[in-house]
């Protein structure tokens, strides 16, 4: 049996996923990294993107993540995500309408409302990622 690592994906609201896996691929701000067992200890910031988890040989699970952190230590990968959702759980209709709403709000915002624009962009990005990851499995 191949060596495994524990993967935990937690958001402030709940534990999204926890499982013994063989590989985790996560989108750090410097680029995508693949994490295998015996990885050296690492803390890195994540950007919005997709997480892939491989387990039981060839099973793969996909997650959309809205940014956060990953900590790797002694074959344990903890992903602290601002928001995360499994590809099978993504509500495509809701993401699509949320995206439209964000786009509309964005268009109406005055150019100097930087904080609001940032928030809007974040929402928009998160919706796009969800839509992108939704079909994958």
């Amino acid at each position: 049996m191949a060596r495994t690592l524990i993967c935990e994906i937690v958001t402030p609201e709940r534990i999204v996923y926890t499982n013994e896996v063989e590989m985790v691929v996560a989108p750090t701000i410097d680029g995508e990294i693949g994490i295998l067992p015996l990885h050296s200890p690492l803390v890195s910031a994540l950007k919005p993107g997709e997480i892939r988890v491989r387990f039981d040989g060839d099973e793969v699970e996909w997650f959309a993540v809205a940014g956060g952190y990953v900590q790797i230590h002694e074959d344990k990968v903890i992903i602290l995500a601002d928001a995360a959702v499994a590809s099978s759980q993504i509500d495509v209709d809701r993401a699509r309408s949320a995206k439209e709403l964000a786009e509309k709000r964005m268009a109406e915002l005055p150019v100097d409302a930087e904080a609001d624009i940032d928030a809007c962009e974040r929402d928009l990005k998160w919706c796009e990622i969800q839509l992108e990851v939704a079909g994958k499995k």
Binding site: P41, V43, Y69
Partner: peptide, 17 residues
């Protein structure tokens, strides 16, 4: 005991954290 690496570096992660 753990010697962590940080990406991009400890200061930037702290800044985000």
């Amino acid at each position: 005991a753990a010697e962590y690496m940080f990406e991009p570096d400890a200061e930037s992660v702290l800044e985000l954290l």
